[in-house]
Simulated scan of single mutants.
Amino acid sequence: MAAVLRTGLRILIIAVLIGPVLLGLAQTLGAAFGWLPALGERSIGLAPWRTLLDQPGLATSIQLTLWTGLSATGFGFALAFALVASLHGRSIGRSLMPWLAPFLAAPHAAIAIGLAFILAPSGWLLRLVAAPLDLTRPPDWALVGDPMGIGLILGLLVKEVPFLALIMSASVSHLPVQRWLVQAGSLGYSRSAAWIRVVLPLMWPQIRLPTLIVLSYALSNVDMALILGPANPPVLAVTVLRA
């Protein structure tokens, strides 16, 4: 009887966890093929896909999406890992980490707008160096809306590096990192090599899901892409929104 109850409890927990995901996936697939009753669309067919494939610059949009999403996630992971590794076990690290929390509460669009004011050709960053460098006009290049998506990558880094750093910091607080570093040092590894070869593989199972969440957002964000991303053509999420 106890075994049956445990099995039923497991099934119930799995259904509660997976059920909303499956419902969301079903609604997404329905909308992809034209079934969207909230907007009065009740005919199932390939018309939405034809509309998407007819969008100009679709291949470039997909390339930009992969480039910006993978780059932001990769660089963000590396920067967050380097930050946690360099500050671990130091008093400055314990005092610095709480200052990263406000970045999590800040809306993505607000960060994008603030970064646009900083990185624009006539923005605050250029104004700080205009007088010392005797600059009288804005430069010809721009990081906001650039065709390579550099501004979008920077915006994603500003938002996601604090998130990943806090996740990694919480993860290493539950691991015997100091003991591993001492053992790796006794085998001739430097501190950085020990973090990469010993700590990171053992920490990865705990931070894998947050990293995938960051990747999924970087590949599908709309608000930051509208403000900082390339516009002609835009990334795939903006293309789908406009289609």
Rank of each mutant, 00 (worst) to 15 (best):
F117D: 03
L96N: 03
L100R: 07
P102F: 03
P147D: 07
A131W: 13
P147V: 03
D140Y: 00
H88A: 13
D140I: 05
L96T: 10
L96Q: 05
I118K: 10
L100S: 04
M97R: 03
I118V: 15
G155R: 05
L152P: 13
A72T: 12
L100G: 01
L115E: 14
G151A: 12
T68K: 05
F117L: 14
P138W: 02
A110P: 04
S86V: 00
I113K: 02
F117N: 05
A131P: 12
L126Y: 13
A82E: 09
P98A: 11
T136W: 10
L128R: 07
A110D: 04
A130L: 10
A80I: 07
I111M: 00
G74S: 11
P98C: 10
L115N: 14
V84E: 09
A78L: 15
F117Q: 04
G89R: 03
L133T: 07
I153V: 15
P139V: 00
P132M: 03
S122A: 14
L128A: 12
M97L: 14
G151E: 10
L119T: 03
A101T: 02
T68R: 08
A72R: 08
M148D: 02
W124N: 01
F75V: 15
R94N: 12
H88L: 08
L83H: 08
V129C: 08
D140A: 15
A105L: 14
P139F: 10
A116Y: 04
L96S: 09
A105I: 09
G123P: 04
L115A: 11
W124E: 00
F81A: 13
A101N: 00
P139I: 02
P98D: 11
I113P: 04
I118M: 15
P139A: 03
L152W: 09
I92T: 14
A142N: 13
T136D: 14
F81K: 04
G123N: 08
A72K: 08
R137I: 11
I150M: 12
L156V: 01
V129S: 12
L100N: 05
V129Y: 07
L125R: 11
R94K: 12
A78Q: 07
H108S: 15
V129F: 14
P132T: 06
A85Q: 01
G69R: 10
G155F: 04
A78K: 00
W99N: 09
S95H: 09
S95W: 13
F75I: 15
A101G: 03
A80E: 13
W124P: 00
G155H: 02
W99Q: 04
L119P: 05
G123S: 10
L143R: 09
G69M: 06
W124C: 01
A80Y: 12
L70T: 07
G123F: 03
D146P: 10
L133W: 08
F77S: 09
T73S: 08
L154N: 00
I150S: 12
G89I: 00
D146C: 02
G114I: 01
G123Q: 05
A142D: 10
G123R: 03
F117R: 03
G93L: 05
R94G: 06
G151Q: 07
